[in-house]
Amino acid sequence: MTTQPILDVSGLTMDFGGIRALNTLDLDVNNGEIVALIGPNGAGKTTFFNCITGIYTPTAGDIWLTPPGGGKKISLNGLKPNQVTEKGLARTFQNIRLFSKMTVLENVMIGRHCRTKAFIFGAIFRNKATLQEEQGILETSYAILEKVGLANYADEFAENLPYGAQRRLEIARALATEPLLLLLDEPAAGMNPQETIGLEHLIKQISREGQAILLIEHDMKLVMSLSDRIFVMDYGKKIAQGTPLEIRENPAVIKAYLGEEVDA
């Protein structure tokens, strides 16, 4: 690929006191790709997500976001989480963080927040622009719910959804922000095999529509079947990168992570 990668992270370092959670990490994601980030527990994967989405401020390193089609490079260094989302990086959480007392539809509508702008006066006077915007929010949100297969849950409170559906809703909510790159933090965690298969289909479908995805996952079967490329981390360092096939046979990875179960 000769074009600029959408996400370009170089030399990302994060220290918590004396502990170096991320050590000069380089990573890039191209447009339309599914890239997986794997590694044993505590390798720093979620810290990496938190750093690039602005929840943590990294000690060193650069994060660049480039809109596809020759857009200008945007630096994400030092931005707040909401600004990062506005620039086009949306994430899901490892431990589900839905707005549990809001309906499913409203959860997705929250995702539209940063793409809309009605404020106090719009809210009170409900002028034409605001009404149109609200209608737009509703239509887009509903369309996204249909895409992830949750449309018939729309008026249910998010906390009442079954586990797998809650995971899907998190993805729907992130998609509603129109991200350039979707970050999924262990989307299959705690899912049963059936739900995982459903999730795999969903991710493939989203990817087919041209959405670039960076995903953290422990389920190797899922990672191997989905990813175009895989980055492997251990102790805050990148120990390998490549296609699933290369990673499968990489001795460093086998040693650090996959162990004996590589051909299981």
Binding site: N82, M102, H113, F119, I120, A123
Partner: peptide, 30 residues
Amino acid sequence: VVNRLQDSRLGRAWIALREDEIACQAMGID
């Protein structure tokens, strides 16, 4: 006024803020 505020983009943002501050920010709410 309060009823209209509650049923607006702003009202939703408030409720989201009440429910989960971190998720709220991650969804692009200032």
